[in-house]
Every structure is written in C-alpha cells, then in structure tokens.
C-alpha cells in the first residue's frame, strides 16, 4: 500500500500526517504532541510495512498543524519521519524532519537538579550527535541520550 492510498483511507480533510515513524516510537510521537488532551481527531497506526524501517507507524491529526518546536521534538525519536500537510483532502506540502543543531523549549531536562526544572525558564539543548542521539543541556551541561528525553 503506498502512502497516498493510506492517506485516502482515513481521509482527513485538513491536518497533518506524520509518517515513517519507527513502529515502537509511534505512541511516543502521539504523547510528545500531547494528542490525548486535544479535541482533534487522531488516528494512530502501527506495524505498516516499510522498506526502510521494516515496520513503521503513522499518526494522523485532523485540523492541526505542527509548530517548529513540535517537528523538532519528533525528529529526536523519529529521525526519518516525513510530515504531510493536508488541505482539502490533498497533500499540500511534504517534508522530512531534521534534527536541529539547537533545541529550544521542545523538551525538558532529565536532571532534576537543573535550573530549568527549578525556575520557569525555557530549556535549550545542543545536539552533539544525531546517531546515536546525544544532546547537552545549555544550563546544567548534562549529556542526555535518547532514553533521557522527556516531553517538556
């Protein structure tokens, strides 16, 4: 099944499709985007065949478009993800996520004794390496790996 067909099946009129998610990170993407809380209609699919990933996941969100911060956040756990913006049932724009050099405010620091967890300030991380993912907190300088990354 090609991705165009898949998009048609659940047919969202307007919104966003996040495709090419490693299948085990699918729920984490949904969690990162805080989809449980919103009113948007969300479809989460897993274990689709993928040439590149073996199995992949897809998340479709009706009537919502992602911010730069949200796209950055997705790139950390799904570096191969592709994002489609749907308007009037058509793919209006399609792009791959990219891990940025600096992450502003998208995730929180895993160090409890970091100033960002003690006073209300925006987090900032430097990406040291993309694969394996390694980032360093601008404030406490702690190095975090993929498993340490939490939603802000």
């Amino acid at each position: 099944m090609n991705s165009k067909k898949m998009l048609q099946i659940s047919g969202i009129q307007e919104g966003t499709v996040v495709d090419h998610i490693p299948t085990k990170s699918t729920f984490k993407v949904a969690e990162f985007l805080n989809l449980k809380e919103g009113k948007n209609i969300v479809t989460v699919g897993m274990n689709f065949e993928s040439k590149k990933l073996g199995k992949k996941g897809v998340v479709k969100i009706g009537e919502r478009f992602l911010t730069k911060g949200e796209v950055d956040k997705i790139s950390l756990i799904a570096p191969d993800a592709r994002i489609s913006i749907i308007k009037d049932y058509e793919v209006k724009e399609k792009f791959s996520v990219e891990i940025p050099k600096i992450l502003n405010g998208s995730i929180s620091c895993a160090n409890n004794n970091c100033i960002t967890n003690n006073q209300s300030i925006t987090t900032k991380f430097y990406v040291l390496s993309k694969d394996p993912l390694k980032i360093r907190c601008h404030y406490c300088e702690r190095t975090l790996g993929k498993d340490d990354i939490e939603v802000a």
Partner: peptide, 9 residues
C-alpha cells in the same frame, strides 16, 4: 548556587 545551570541563567 546549589542548582546546576544557575550561573548560566
């Protein structure tokens, strides 16, 4: 300061 990153802030 006892909290890490306080000086940077």
């Amino acid at each position: 300061h006892p909290v890490e990153g306080a000086a940077r802030l």
